[in-house]
Design a protein around this nucleic acid. Structure first.
Length: 235
DNA sequence: ATGCATGAGTA
DNA sequence: ACTCATGCATA
């Protein structure tokens, strides 16, 4: 899917011809807040909400719109989240916008503490593969964008947009790939002990001939996976 | 769409 | 050293 920040041009012609000026990623003023590609750089659009325990507290009521942040029950209900996620995706596609587009466009919403998000995150929101709390926090933001986008789609209009500048490439991050056999072993270990001690991790790492850090991160990610809506206690 | 990774915040 | 939100890279 998305490669760079350029895929915007191929979404300018859909029937809806929705070229939402401020919501589209290639808007006049959409300088990707981050150009530091040397992956040791500031990545996260660290919003104000990021205290421990994640967003375990009440959802941000100020971001909520009329139908959003009124009663926690409505926003916290897994069924509602699921329904919203589906509607969101459907309407997003109707608008002819990609997941990556939505992510970039969020920055144009100018909501307090809300910057851009990646295609990954939008995708995960739609597929409910985020934690419950994460879903709750993102819902009002995506809902706000959706409403704005649809509103602007109504006043269909064209406008000359400036081609985005592709940032110069820097170091690329390499992704380790754990082979299937090793992965099966890890899963077996995980089934017995989801939280192995440092020593245990080291042992496993040596046994599978993997770097200790790779194994440690694998377990962390595995634990996170269990907490995602799709895996965690089904509603 | 998803695997492996980073980094802030916490304990 | 962990959790949690998030993203680059890649299947």
């Amino acid at each position: 899917m998305g490669h760079h920040g350029m895929e915007g041009i191929d979404m300018l012609d859909p029937l809806t011809s929705s070229s939402m000026t401020t919501l589209a990623p290639m808007g006049e003023s959409a300088p990707p807040h981050h150009q530091l590609h040397g992956y040791g750089a500031m990545n996260h659009v660290m919003n104000h909400h990021h205290h421990g325990g994640g967003l375990s507290h009440a959802p941000p009521a100020h971001l909520g719109h009329p139908s959003a942040g009124l009663h926690p029950d409505t926003d916290t209900d897994p069924r509602e989240l699921e329904a919203f996620a589906e509607r969101f995706k459907q309407r997003r596609i109707k608008l002819g916008v990609t997941q990556a587009d939505v992510g970039k466009a969020l920055a144009n919403l100018k909501l307090p503490g809300v910057g851009a998000l990646s295609q990954s995150t939008i995708c995960r929101f739609e597929s409910l593969t985020l934690s419950h709390n994460n879903m709750i926090a993102l819902k009002p933001i995506l809902q706000a964008w959706l409403e704005e986008a649809e509103a602007q789609a109504k006043n269909k209009r064209r406008d000359p947009d400036a081609p985005s500048v592709l940032p110069a490439g820097e170091k690329k991050r390499k992704r380790t790939s754990i082979a299937a056999p090793e992965k099966r072993s890890l899963e077996a270990y995980f089934a017995v002990q989801p939280r192995p001690s440092g020593e245990k991790i080291a042992a496993i790492a040596e046994k599978l001939d993997l770097k200790k850090n790779v194994v440690r991160v694998w377990f962390c990610n595995q634990r996170q996976k269990q907490k995602r809506m799709k895996f965690a206690a089904q509603h």
